[in-house]
């Protein structure tokens, strides 16, 4: 298990390095110049040149890249020149909101998805199975920002069950969670359907396995056979899909944060990309990718914990 963990961590770091380097290169080579946005159209060429020199924008890309990594490894994500604050402050004050949002979405998709999927497989062709099947496909197909908008309209504006905007009072966990329910559900709903489909399919496959017949041949109670012996195997693909799905949830979080006016990495990236705010873009991308890779790593480790066959495979 230790070797496996170390291998996965090394792989995760490599992924972060490659992804960020590629993004940095794309960002710098993209047309558009922070000097125009930041200094305004009336800045003299001298001021611009001065600024470009200060920011190292004239250096070759590989030098800029090396500089960038050098700073990052020293713990400095750069400075947000637009608001004159360290990028780290901007990113790390936004990160907890996005983390909460994504984990809320994972919570919904894992809990509801696994329960619905297992139950549908156990009661194949029942009314619940059919309804879940249709709704799952519908929610997978609907873009999450549409779901977010309609959820906002229905539950907050019309029914007034949930607050419309914001992330809740700082320091008040209850208020935070209350504000979290709707946006995380809006992101998670598509994944509920997805996970339910996957769990249902893999459950049906598992139920026809020889070892399930063995469990039944030894007279184990039906409940134990299905919700323990079979489900333990059937959830494995769902865990893997959720781990990778965090990337999708992060991009859905961008919309949910805009729709619900929540602070977070999503809205931070959105604002900084439209303003060509390179340091903030790179800082938040670095953290977002790091977050994604960490989550995928956690999913792998959970999978290894659930499936002993994974641990010994190198």
């Amino acid at each position: 298990m230790l070797t496996y963990t170390l291998q996965r961590v090394a792989l995760a770091l490599a992924i972060v390095f490659v992804a960020i380097s590629a993004l940095f290169t794309i960002m710098v080579t993209l047309p558009g110049d922070p000097t125009t946005v930041l200094l305004g159209p009336r800045a003299t060429p001298e001021i611009r040149a001065e600024f470009r020199l200060q920011m190292g924008l004239d250096n070759p890309i590989y030098v800029q890249l090396a500089d960038f990594w050098g700073r990052v490894l020293a713990g400095d994500l750069g400075t947000d020149y637009y608001r004159n604050r360290p990028v780290a402050v901007a990113v790390f004050s936004a990160l907890p909101h996005t983390t909460a949002l994504v984990f809320g979405a994972i919570f919904w998709s894992a809990s509801l998805g696994i329960v619905l999927g297992a139950f549908s497989a156990d009661n194949r062709n029942s009314l619940l199975d059919r309804v879940t099947g249709v709704l799952s496909v519908a929610f997978i197909a609907a873009p999450s920002f549409v779901v977010a908008l309609y959820a906002l309209l229905l539950f907050s504006v019309t029914l007034r069950w949930f607050p419309t905007i914001g992330a809740g009072e700082p320091g008040d966990i209850g208020s935070r969670l209350y504000h979290l329910i709707l946006p995380s559900l809006a992101i998670g709903l598509a994944w509920v359907g997805y996970v339910a489909r996957i769990v249902r399919a893999s459950m049906l496959e598992t139920l026809s396995e020889s070892y399930i017949r063995t469990a039944r041949a030894f007279g184990l109670p039906r409940r134990v056979v299905i919700y323990n012996y079979a489900l333990r195997v059937a959830i494995l693909p769902a865990v893997q899909v959720l781990g990778v799905g965090i990337g999708g949830m992060l991009s859905a979080a961008v919309f949910a944060e805009i729709v619900f006016s929540r602070p977070g990495i999503g809205s931070l990236i959105y604002d900084s990309v439209s303003g060509r705010n390179y340091p903030v873009v790179m800082g938040s991308m670095l953290v977002a990718i790091g977050f994604f890779v960490t989550c995928a790593l956690i999913a792998d480790l959970i999978n290894a914990a659930l499936d002993p066959r994974h641990r010994t495979k190198s």
């Binding site: 020889s210 063995t214 469990a215 041949a217 007279g219 012996y229 333990r232 195997v233 499936d307």
Partner: peptide
């Protein structure tokens, strides 16, 4: 269910697939 495993039990053909892999 009472009889299975208690009064009659079975050894299946393929030992590679007849035991639960994650338990």
């Amino acid at each position: 269910r009472d009889l299975r495993g208690q009064d009659m039990s079975v050894v299946f053909q393929d030992p590679m697939t007849s035991l639960n892999p994650v338990i």
